[in-house]
């Protein structure tokens, strides 16, 4: 059989392509049923939300109480970097004028102006951080939690520019030497070069526990539950008390509500 060199090359190329595609075919042919499932103990919700009763916190809590903040930061091995530039915070205190900028006036009660407000990631329904992330390293879970995938984050910090609430912290340096609390051996730390934030304690919900801050508050100022469930505690609070959210005009629809 006569064949030109050109034809030989063509056939050879086609064969090489076929061989190269073999692993893909194999991967598709493999049809194992999934061997993974959520924990049966896990707390589930259509959409998680938190109501923070600041009045209760100020009135019932001991002055300067930081139980919720400390609980979160020690459970999640959050480092304590003392410089204001590189601070890492998941949940912390802010004054009213900083937590709710643009809504202050000169004649607010002293209490509102001076007392601390607890702030954390709002787990927005329309999170700008998720919209801008170029790798889906931060993403929205079905149950409303705005998650971080620390394995995938490239550290571009676009999410920090996107977040209207300053809820995100970047690991400018290796955080390990700055973890002041006793290491929680069951939770990882983060590494240099990724962005981190509150995750509504996804790891605790997965095994049937409430978020660490909610559990740590002795006066019950933090209420956590399913906002889509009309009988949940959060819905009852929202129906009976006047609540505000941070920067509602931006349309991000925060899942953290405040009773003032």
């Amino acid at each position: 059989m006569e064949s030109s060199r050109r034809n030989f090359m063509k056939i050879g190329g086609a064969c090489a392509l076929g061989l190269g595609a073999l692993p893909i075919v194999k991967a598709y042919a493999k049809n194992e049923k999934p061997q993974v499932a959520p924990d049966s103990k896990a707390l589930v919700a259509t959409k998680w939300a938190m109501v923070i009763d600041m009045k209760k916190c100020w009135e019932k809590g001991k002055p300067g109480c930081k139980d919720c903040l400390l609980a979160c930061h020690s459970v999640h091995n959050v480092p304590e970097i003392k410089t204001i530039k590189e601070e890492i915070k998941w949940i912390w205190n802010e004054q009213y004028e900083h937590a709710f900028p643009g809504q202050e006036n000169h004649f607010l009660p002293e209490e509102i102006r001076q007392k601390p407000f607890i702030v954390l990631c709002n787990h927005c329904t329309n999170p700008p951080c998720v919209r801008v992330c170029p790798t889906k390293a931060t993403f929205k879970r079905k149950d409303g939690i705005t998650m971080m995938d620390y394995h995938r984050c490239i550290g571009c910090r676009y999410c920090m520019a996107g977040c209207p609430y300053g809820a995100r912290s970047f690991n400018f340096r290796d955080p390990r030497p700055y973890i002041q609390t006793e290491l929680n051996m069951t939770y990882p730390t983060r590494e240099r070069g990724v962005v981190e934030k509150c995750s509504f304690c996804d790891e605790r919900l997965a095994v049937g526990l409430l978020p660490a801050c909610v559990e740590a508050c002795k006066c019950g100022a933090l209420c956590f539950g399913d906002i889509e469930d009309p009988n949940s505690e959060v819905r009852k609070l929202l129906a009976s008390r006047f609540t505000i959210r941070r920067k509602p005009e931006l349309g991000t629809q925060p899942s953290v509500y405040y009773i003032v």
């Binding site: 061997q35 993974v36 959520p38 149950d143 995938d149 069951t186 095994v207």
Partner: peptide, 21 residues
């Protein structure tokens, strides 16, 4: 991290918590 599945069932039916640490 991404699918919130934490339990792995091995081929012998035993269940494991999917966690390195």
């Amino acid at each position: 991290v991404r699918n919130n599945n934490r339990i792995y069932t091995a081929s012998d039916g035993k269940q494991y918590n999917m966690s390195l640490q």
